[in-house]
């Protein structure tokens, strides 16, 4: 193995203007003492603690509605085959959702009528966006 000791003095000059500083370990703390203490229930007991942003932004659970078809992946809408008021049978292909170069099929989940189509061909939809409502 070839080796050499790079002599920094003859090869380098340091163009950096950093100032002296001290490690601030406080900065690597999430909860600071000034943070707001609030009520937080676990089981049937209420504790006093801080509640972080991620926890506050938790979405409450809603049971899925099979009459509402949503995008399970972000992508582009193609070939909408039905319009409002059309009758559909369970399994009918209502439209395609192109994502990651793959055409995904959006099928009717029940026998019924199209109540509303919320998207147009060619639009880009995000994950969980409502596409079609059936009734």
């Amino acid at each position: 193995m070839y080796s050499l000791n790079v002599n920094t003095e003859f090869l380098h000059s340091k163009p950096y203007g950093f100032e002296l500083f001290f490690i601030n370990l406080e900065r690597n703390r999430m909860a600071k003492k000034k943070d707001k203490i609030e009520d937080f229930q676990v089981g049937e007991t209420i504790y006093r603690t801080t509640v972080n942003k991620m926890h506050k932004e938790r979405k409450p659970y809603t049971p899925p509605d099979i009459r509402k078809l949503t995008a399970f992946i972000p992508g582009t809408i193609l070939d909408i085959a039905f319009k409002k008021g059309d009758e559909v049978k369970e399994g009918d292909i209502i439209m395609y959702l192109e994502a990651m170069k793959m055409k995904n099929i959006i099928k009717a989940s029940i026998d019924g009528v199209i109540k509303k189509i919320h998207v147009k061909e060619g639009v880009i939809v995000s994950k969980n966006q409502l596409l079609v409502e059936l009734k």
């Binding site: 070839y2 920094t8 340091k14 950096y16």
Partner: peptide, 23 residues
């Protein structure tokens, strides 16, 4: 940002760095 070599020199003990595969 610092350059790669300066980062190493800054992190390691003074004059302790030996470089290999320079060429």
């Amino acid at each position: 940002k610092m350059t790669a070599r300066d980062r190493i020199i800054e992190l390691l003990d003074d004059k302790s760095f030996f470089e290999y595969d320079l060429f």
